[in-house]
Amino acid sequence: MDAALEAEIQQKHTAETILAMRRWTDKLISFRLTRPAAYRFAAGQFARLGLPLEQGGQVWRAYSMCSAEHDDFLDFYSIVVPEGQFSSRLARLQPGGQVMLDKRAMGFFQADRLPDGRDLWLLATGTGIAPYLSILQQPEVWRRFERIALVHCVRETAELSFQDEIAALRDHPLWHEHGHKLQYLPVATRDAPAGMLGQRIPALLDNGELAARAGMAMTPEHSRFMLCGNPKMVEDTHRQLMKMGYRMTRQNAPGHIVLENGW
């Protein structure tokens, strides 16, 4: 590589160390990196992470932060694609290994883009739950809304990661007086046990089961939505919500929905 190009790349990223690696399933991992003292992000944003290639150069992927804005580390959640150029390499790393981190956080998937409302719906599929774990560590989110529903839809129940961490959010000392506001609604489309929701999120919105299970009637006046996950879920859910009378938030036109594609 040209020396000038190499120097330019190094100015744009830092090399961070893996502090912990957790394997939830053979296809899902979470990992913790060191955090540069100067690194800043807003809950809901994503980082660009890079790994070197054997033949030279790097491969980069975007990952939403799971950690809080104030944490002195950075947490991420990833699907492992067996032949994937990035994730398969990442999954083989151990604590002590290194990952490149772009110095700038990116994205506009933040709760403060939504106008005030009574109910906040956080709708996710798969690893799309990651930014909500960060967003739910903002005290102002708990104060702004009277009720919060975190909906995590997966194919199989083994993929319902972070259940203990979600439960612990209710008792966090910074917002424990508001902890009762949170409902966690898991959904498994292939092996849901009796009593668990088992359809895709758009269908659960359409037939009213999601609102009924949460005990939270959905109305444009009171309901605000964040969507994150695979593009098909985001597209179909957005379309369904529009049929129900909701609209996207724009820069100069506050609405009811903000969205992010998980990949």
Rank of each mutant, 00 (worst) to 15 (best):
152 H>D: 09
160 L>Q: 00
249 T>L: 03
242 M>C: 13
38 A>F: 03
127 T>K: 04
191 D>K: 00
222 H>I: 07
224 R>V: 02
190 R>Q: 01
173 P>H: 12
31 F>H: 03
246 Y>F: 15
21 M>N: 00
29 I>Y: 00
139 P>K: 13
189 T>C: 02
249 T>R: 02
6 E>A: 15
100 M>W: 14
218 M>C: 08
210 L>V: 11
190 R>W: 00
17 T>C: 13
134 S>K: 00
71 D>K: 06
165 E>A: 06
113 R>Y: 10
177 E>G: 08
208 G>L: 06
259 L>I: 02
187 V>T: 03
99 V>M: 09
7 A>C: 02
140 E>R: 13
149 A>I: 08
121 W>H: 05
123 L>E: 07
237 T>S: 13
115 P>L: 08
104 R>S: 13
224 R>S: 03
86 F>T: 10
19 L>S: 12
18 I>T: 01
2 D>W: 10
194 A>V: 02
154 V>F: 00
246 Y>E: 06
68 A>V: 06
112 D>P: 05
206 D>Y: 04
154 V>T: 01
194 A>H: 04
211 A>T: 06
13 H>I: 11
118 R>Q: 14
51 L>F: 05
182 L>W: 05
69 E>Q: 13
260 E>Q: 12
78 S>Q: 08
2 D>Y: 06
118 R>E: 15
195 G>P: 10
237 T>I: 09
103 K>T: 11
31 F>K: 05
229 G>M: 13
209 E>A: 14
231 P>E: 04
126 G>V: 07
145 F>H: 14
31 F>E: 03
148 I>C: 06
141 V>A: 07
254 P>K: 11
141 V>W: 11
18 I>A: 01
52 P>K: 07
157 T>E: 09
245 G>K: 03
63 Y>K: 12
205 L>S: 09
154 V>P: 00
79 I>P: 03
159 E>D: 13
107 G>K: 15
147 R>L: 03
69 E>F: 09
51 L>I: 07
56 G>M: 01
68 A>W: 03
72 D>F: 02
194 A>L: 02
76 F>G: 04
35 R>W: 04
68 A>H: 06
128 G>S: 12
254 P>V: 11
204 L>C: 10
225 F>R: 14
225 F>S: 09
65 M>K: 03
80 V>A: 07
133 L>Q: 05
204 L>R: 00
245 G>N: 09
181 K>S: 13
